[in-house]
Design a protein around this nucleic acid. Structure first.
Lengths: 182, 182
DNA sequence: CCCGAATGAGACAGTGATGTCTCATTCGGG
DNA sequence: CCCGAATGAGACATCACTGTCTCATTCGGG
């Protein structure tokens, strides 16, 4: 049986999220294959991380498509987006902290993602749904940060997996402060 | 002149925040000293990271003291806390992503910080200032995550340094959604 | 069943970082 | 000014990881 490349990437993502400095040997073991086979699929550590980056970008972009962020109420669209990113949360948490990626040239895909996410926040502001005091760039950054924090909190047992989406969405949209009137 | 140990730690923190895998040689150069001297102050890389951890915990604890988080309106206390963490933001951003620390035993100091921060959120909930749908544990996690995201956004030029505190505080407290009534 | 492809296990050299050492030089207080 | 402490520069062995290779074994389609 030919090794399932996507399965290897998924296992690598799960391990690297917990331990960003895991060696090729540890990654191979986590994926249930030998180091030789791992090298047959990915020329080296760089290639593996790059493949993970591509996978993360692709899946996040798919989440953007599924959530139809250009349609309907912006707040609801954001909720849909956060829910749709659930399967990518782990990979994103890893990639977000992998500042190594920013030393060597940045993958063009990030610009596409940033643009679409930022556009959603901007639309929300124009439609009066989102506050104007928080810049779309910061809201985008905060979204990434909270997705990472959510994934990490779940992985560490501080938040139940089923609550992840709601916790991230409620905090990002409504904040911690209680509203006097709705 | 004896090397200013705190200065070395500050430079190390600044570099490691940007590049978590920086070598001892790079850290030494960034601090303006030789690798030999760096080793004379910190037995090894582990010891350096541990010292950084201690420094981060100590400074964050000082921020908690300065902000007097047990006094007054919980929301205002949280604002004070976020403002007071400004000098530690970089170090916290690094430590937050340094999952290496969680493999070897966890520094007891983190528990103290978590307890105090969580207590603030809990007090806010009891006093009716904070929403009950978001658990104090998650709010604590989100605070750390947003401090990290803020530091990273400033470092990357997406948010002006002078806006950092306000952006983090406003998002964490009020969220992205616009309030219909105040 | 058979044969080619895929895999696992391990050897191997190369590489970069680490930690320790020595020695010459610089600094600064007395 | 002088002397001891601190520093810088570099040598050195060690270590872990990497990337490549070989060879025996296993797998699975035809």
């Amino acid at each position: 049986m030919s090794v399932d490349r996507d399965h290897v990437l998924a296992e690598a993502a799960a391990l690297l999220t917990r331990k960003a400095t895991a060696s090729m040997d540890e990654i191979a073991k986590a994926a249930g294959i030998s180091r030789a086979t791992l090298h047959r699929h990915f020329a080296g550590r760089d290639a593996l991380v790059r493949a993970l980056e591509d996978l993360g970008i692709e899946q996040f972009e798919r989440a953007l498509d599924e959530a139809r962020t250009e349609e309907g109420d912006a707040a609801e669209a954001l909720r849909r987006l956060i829910a749709a990113t659930e399967p990518v949360a782990g990979i994103m948490a890893f990639l977000y902290t992998e500042n190594q990626l920013y030393e060597a040239g940045l993958n063009e895909g990030w610009n596409r993602l940033d643009a679409r996410v930022t556009a959603l926040f901007q639309r929300g502001q124009e439609e009066g749904a989102f506050r104007l005091e928080l810049s779309p760039a910061w809201l985008t950054e905060a979204l990434y940060g909270l997705i990472g924090a959510g994934a990490w909190a779940v992985q560490d047992g501080r938040v139940a997996a089923k609550d992840r989406t709601r916790m991230v969405a409620e905090l990002l949209l409504g904040g911690a402060q209680r509203r006097m009137k709705q």
